[in-house]
Amino acid sequence: MPLIVILLTVAIVAASTVQLMSENSILFPRSISEWMFEAGAIAGGPDFQGVYRPLGWFAPLVLHVFLHGGIFHLAMNMTAMVAFGPPIAMAFGRDLKGALGFLIFFVGAAIAGALFQIGWSDLTGQSELAIGTSSALSGFLPAVGWIMGGYKQAIRMSVPWLLINIAIAVTGELLAGAVGIRLAWAAHIGGLAGGFVLFPLLLAVFNPRVWARIRQLHH
């Protein structure tokens, strides 16, 4: 298990634990979770135009990955992190440069997901909040595909998740009523697209030997 994956997982679990415990007034005052949402949650649509963000408008594009809707939400995302993160981190390399490349890729996919979520909310006029690591984790799917079989496998890995989220978008209100939460399908699609584009570009910069090997094997 690459160290960067362990550290990132621990950081997300720690932040989400504080948030969730604060929401339930266990050990931490509720004001902490409220501030974390103000600072980190993705907020799009007319109801959130001009709303105060303690750390500025850019911070939520990244910090939303440290917030979760519950223990089950957190557990699912961290399972995906430890399942798909290691091969991606190892592709970038186990040294400090590789860890930096992995972090930039993770953050880039998260930002892509957040921007797509905000853009969709603003376009449709539907005000929504979104939290969770799944925006960035969606970008892991095409990245693993690139490693396994070049761009063709990246497409194969991406299409099922794309179709699932299109289905979620179509059945949004019905699904929200059934599971009790609204899934941030737009953030998933944005993260998926971001991961597909960013992984080969960043790998070519941070570990050109692995990128050359992937190109040689799958072209």
Rank of each mutant, 00 (worst) to 15 (best):
I4N: 06
T171W: 12
V159M: 12
G139D: 05
G93R: 11
G40D: 01
Q49L: 10
N207H: 14
T79L: 15
A167H: 09
F102V: 01
W57D: 14
S135C: 03
L7N: 03
G149V: 14
H188R: 11
T124R: 05
L202G: 07
Q19V: 01
R94C: 02
G40H: 03
A184S: 14
Q49E: 13
A14Q: 07
P142K: 01
A114Y: 09
P160K: 09
G149R: 14
V5M: 01
L8T: 11
S121L: 08
A109L: 02
T133Q: 11
G150W: 04
N207P: 04
L137S: 05
G50D: 10
D47H: 13
I6R: 13
G195W: 10
I88T: 04
F199D: 12
F196L: 15
H219T: 12
P60Y: 09
L137C: 09
G195S: 03
P60A: 12
R215C: 10
D95A: 10
I6K: 15
G180A: 12
L123I: 11
A109E: 05
F58G: 05
I12V: 15
I189H: 11
G69K: 02
L100G: 12
S31G: 10
W35Q: 08
A109N: 06
A136H: 05
F102R: 03
I111E: 03
M81S: 05
Q19M: 10
S33E: 04
I181A: 05
S31T: 14
G108L: 07
V5E: 09
V159C: 02
I189Q: 12
I164E: 13
F206I: 05
G93F: 01
G191L: 05
I6C: 01
L141P: 04
H68I: 00
T133R: 01
F206L: 04
L74F: 02
L27D: 08
T171V: 08
L202A: 07
A167K: 05
F199Y: 06
T79H: 00
G40M: 03
L63N: 02
E38S: 14
Q216S: 13
F28E: 13
Q153P: 02
A169G: 15
R215S: 09
Q117S: 13
V65R: 00
G119L: 05
S25H: 13
L74Q: 11
P142M: 11
D95Q: 10
Q216G: 15
I118Y: 01
I118T: 14
I111R: 06
A110G: 13
Q49S: 14
A89E: 07
M1H: 02
A204N: 12
G177T: 10
S33N: 06
T79S: 04
Y151H: 07
G45C: 08
A212M: 07
W57A: 13
T17D: 03
S33W: 06
L27I: 15
A41F: 00
H219R: 14
L183K: 06
H188P: 03
P87A: 09
P160N: 12
P142Q: 10
P208C: 00
A187V: 03
L27H: 11
W57Q: 13
M78G: 01
G195C: 07
E173S: 15
V51W: 02
F116V: 15
A80C: 08
I32C: 01
G85F: 09
V179N: 05
L203F: 06
V51Q: 11
G145W: 04
A15W: 01
A114F: 04
L96Y: 00
G177E: 09
M76V: 15
Q126S: 10
G93K: 09
A14C: 04
G44K: 06
